[in-house]
Design a protein around this nucleic acid. Structure first.
Length: 400
DNA sequence: TCTGGGGTCCTAGGACCC
DNA sequence: TCTGGGGTCCTAGGACCC
């Protein structure tokens, strides 16, 4: 999806289009726009239907932000001031104080996410979820999926998404996921790009290695250290050389990726591996001095994970914590227990055991609780019934 | 006045078992 | 007395992605 968060916001607030705008944070004080409008602009009774009428000068500015949030999305006019994704909002406020600041509204983004995915699934059912704003689609067996190299189907999907949501997207069509992901970047926004195997040299090899999904800042820096800057330069290296310098698995993958080879299937369904909740405090907290506050946050995180597990129907048997010190160093501890659980008190209890194994002499800025080794709750219920038959029940209660 | 939150996957060492 | 060869599970950290 093109500039997904910003585009969803523009559906509600079209008056903000073209302005420098930043989405991020969430701890700003003036979160409830409507309540504030009625208090400060009582000339009319504002309702949720009037969002598009809110005067631009009413929106909070980056300069008013106080907190530890980061930018999740910056619009192009804001980027011209040097602000960008992942930058701290306080720093961004120095660079572009007049930019409009909207808090993230994940519920709304998720709502549109479900909607655009539903539209795609109705046309091409084999899709793989890649987060809130992205999917892989297998065109192979969709009727008409091969016409004009996939362009016809891609156009249909774009048109259907726009009609259903008012949002635009960019689609890359290619023989595999690796190339399709890169192709989807070629023609933004609202574009379609078809990349064939024969386009490798001309379209892919000139790109920087960083454009390969899976090469991040660390791997890129290492490659650059060997004088490898483009995918073409990476493709020139012997497979054995890459394996020697980057390990058996990673080296072989780098070689394949540079040659546009990728056999991964489009995976339509998968089980979650872990669920977690974490929070960065408004100010650094000390284990002793702020014991009560930390304890309350810790309990709340455990309750939130428990609620998430129960809502989604899972239980886990590895419970862990994550904490980040004031120097930004992060540590984790986890412990596996005999029985799967989704109980808040049990999670809190085991997480508390984990906390005892970690040095607490420094101030903390973040605390998190995680549950992994998940299993669907219904499977566990069945296994439990199998292994411990209830004497009150007949031995052969049901068929199958 | 730096640096979110929720994930996945990989590696590597140690325990433990056969 | 001087070092097997799997295999699995657990734990901690880190890279990477959206």
């Amino acid at each position: 999806m093109d500039a997904f968060y910003a585009s969803v916001e523009w559906l509600r607030y079209p008056q903000l289009k073209g302005l420098p705008m930043v989405i991020g944070g969430g701890r700003r004080k003036e979160d409830d726009l409507i309540a504030r409008l009625n208090a400060e602009r009582p000339e009319r009774a504002w309702t949720a239907h009037d969002l598009a009428l809110i005067p631009v000068d009413f929106f909070p500015r980056l300069s008013s932000y106080v907190g530890r949030g980061v930018i999740t999305t910056a619009t192009y006019p804001a980027r011209q001031f040097g602000v960008g994704s992942a930058m701290g909002l306080m720093k961004a406020a120095r660079l572009c104080p007049q930019a409009i600041l909207l808090p993230v509204d994940f519920d709304e983004y998720r709502r549109f996410s479900r909607e655009f995915k539903r539209v795609i699934r109705d046309i091409a059912p084999v899709i793989e979820d890649r987060g809130v704003d992205e999917v892989y689609i297998d065109f192979t067996h969709v009727p008409g999926g091969q016409r004009e190299g996939g362009r016809v189907l891609a156009r249909l999907i774009q048109k259907s998404i726009f009609e259903a949501t008012g949002l635009t997207c960019s689609i890359g069509v290619a023989p595999n996921k690796l190339l399709a992901k890169m192709a989807s970047e070629f023609n933004k926004p609202n574009g379609i790009s078809v990349v064939r195997e024969s386009d490798l040299e001309s379209l892919i090899w000139p790109l920087p290695c960083r454009k390969i999904n899976g090469i991040g800042p660390k791997a890129d820096a290492r490659l650059q250290g060997h004088g490898i800057h483009t995918i073409g330069e990476l493709a020139e290296r012997d497979r054995t050389w890459l394996v020697q310098h980057f390990g058996k698995s990673h080296g072989a993958w780098l070689h394949d990726a540079a040659h546009g080879r990728d056999e991964r299937p489009v995976v339509t369904e998968s089980e979650p591996v872990s669920m977690s909740r974490e929070t960065t405090f408004e100010r650094d907290l000390h284990a002793v001095r702020d014991r009560a506050e930390l304890g309350a946050i810790f309990t709340r995180l455990a309750e939130q994970v428990a609620t998430d597990l129960q809502r989604k129907g899972y239980a886990g048997k590895t419970i862990g914590i994550k904490l980040r010190y004031d120097d930004f160093k992060t540590v984790t501890r986890d412990q596996t227990v005999a029985e799967h659980t989704s109980d808040a008190r049990r999670i809190r209890q085991v997480a508390g055991q984990c906390l005892k194994r970690v040095p607490l002499n420094r101030c903390l800025r973040l605390l998190g609780v995680r549950v992994s080794s998940l299993a669907p709750a219904q499977d566990l219920a069945r296994q439990h019934a199998d292994s411990s038959p209830d004497p009150e029940l007949p031995l052969f209660p049901t068929a199958g």
